[in-house]
């Protein structure tokens, strides 16, 4: 039998129930507020993130740079040079150090394409011999690499090697991904200097680094360089295999000139082995690729080699 509830007991019971209800309501509200606050914070993190805004001057410089790149890709080097010059001027006006270095480097690249080595050297020297502005190690790597390329073009391998070493040193301090390209250039220099064994060593080093950084274009370059070195050492089977690997990569990248060079390389191996018919097929393919790409030098080389084959 339960006891009858008096008025005092009922009042206490009623208050307890009320407090429980109030606690539940407050607890629910608190949870909802916490959730809303969390959503608010997340929205602030997401929506509040604004992309860095650039000034009109910076945008103008970038616009010139992009127009120049477009002209360069179309093969209009003089127009590209003018645009890079304008981009450089705008970057100088706001002392955008990286912008100055990038456009100087690009101008050097265009001058090299135009065969104006003196001006190319001048552009690069401005980065390397700067007294007032301190350029980043990455840009110094680019400049040293370009210096090495310019000396290689002139057949001056000693200064070229010095600059490749400097480029490697800058690249290491900048933590850049260009080391493989620099080793490739070293391999090329040794190959041109009739030292295929050293070329293979540096080519392999370049190949390893390029694979590490997944730079497909430079991987193909490494393979081609090693193939060329192996050809001169009469290691034909390995060389063909390397050329074929480089060829498939160049095809994937759509580099017509490189495709023609790879095909010429394989043709040369067959010719060295006295297999003129096989060599002729590759020369014809190289001729066709070179002709389509508008590369007169490749077309001329392929034609000469085809004549050689036909005479035998």
């Amino acid at each position: 039998m339960s006891k009858p509830v008096n008025s005092e007991q009922y009042s206490v019971f009623s208050k307890k129930t009320e407090y429980k209800k109030l606690f539940t309501i407050h607890y629910s509200l608190f949870t909802v507020y916490c959730l809303l606050f969390t959503v608010y914070c997340l929205l602030n993190i997401g929506c509040g993130h604004k992309p860095p805004t650039l000034s009109d001057t910076h945008l103008k410089a970038i616009d010139f740079n992009q127009r120049a790149e477009h002209a360069f890709k179309k093969g209009d080097y003089k127009k590209a040079l003018n645009f890079y010059h304008e981009a450089l001027k705008v970057n100088r006006s706001v002392e955008n150090i990286d912008g100055i270095a990038i456009n100087l480097m690009n101008m050097a690249t265009v001058y090299r394409k135009l065969g104006d080595k003196d001006n190319a050297h001048k552009c690069v020297d401005e980065i390397l011999n700067s007294s007032g502005i301190i350029y980043s190690s990455l840009r110094l790597t680019d400049a040293s690499f370009m210096k090495a390329l310019l000396f290689t073009d002139d057949g001056k391998y000693d200064p070229a090697l010095e600059w490749t070493d400097k480029a490697i040193s800058f690249c290491k301090s900048a933590g850049c991904h260009m080391e493989g390209s620099i080793y490739n250039l070293k391999a090329k220099m040794y190959l041109l200097n009739k030292d295929p064994n050293s070329a293979i060593i540096y080519g392999n080093k370049g190949l390893e680094l390029n694979r590490k950084y997944d730079d497909v274009q430079e991987i193909a370059n490494s393979l081609r360089l090693i193939a060329e070195a192996k050809t001169s050492l009469n290691q034909f089977e390995e060389a063909i295999k390397l050329y074929e690997d480089a060829l498939s990569m160049d095809k994937a990248l759509g580099l017509s000139k490189k495709i023609a060079i790879d095909l010429m390389g394989i043709g040369n191996i067959f010719l060295k082995q006295g297999k003129c018919e096989d060599a002729l097929k590759y020369y014809q393919r190289a001729h066709s690729a070179g002709e389509s790409a508008g590369d007169q030098q490749v077309v001329k080389d392929a034609s000469n080699m085809m004549d050689k084959c036909l005479q035998k």
Partner: peptide, 19 residues
């Protein structure tokens, strides 16, 4: 999130090919 998919313009350096 549109801003996440829009590339911020910048000065670009031409790729230098070692070969």
């Amino acid at each position: 999130p549109i801003s996440l998919y829009i590339e911020v313009p910048e000065n670009k350096i031409l790729k230098i090919d070692s070969y």
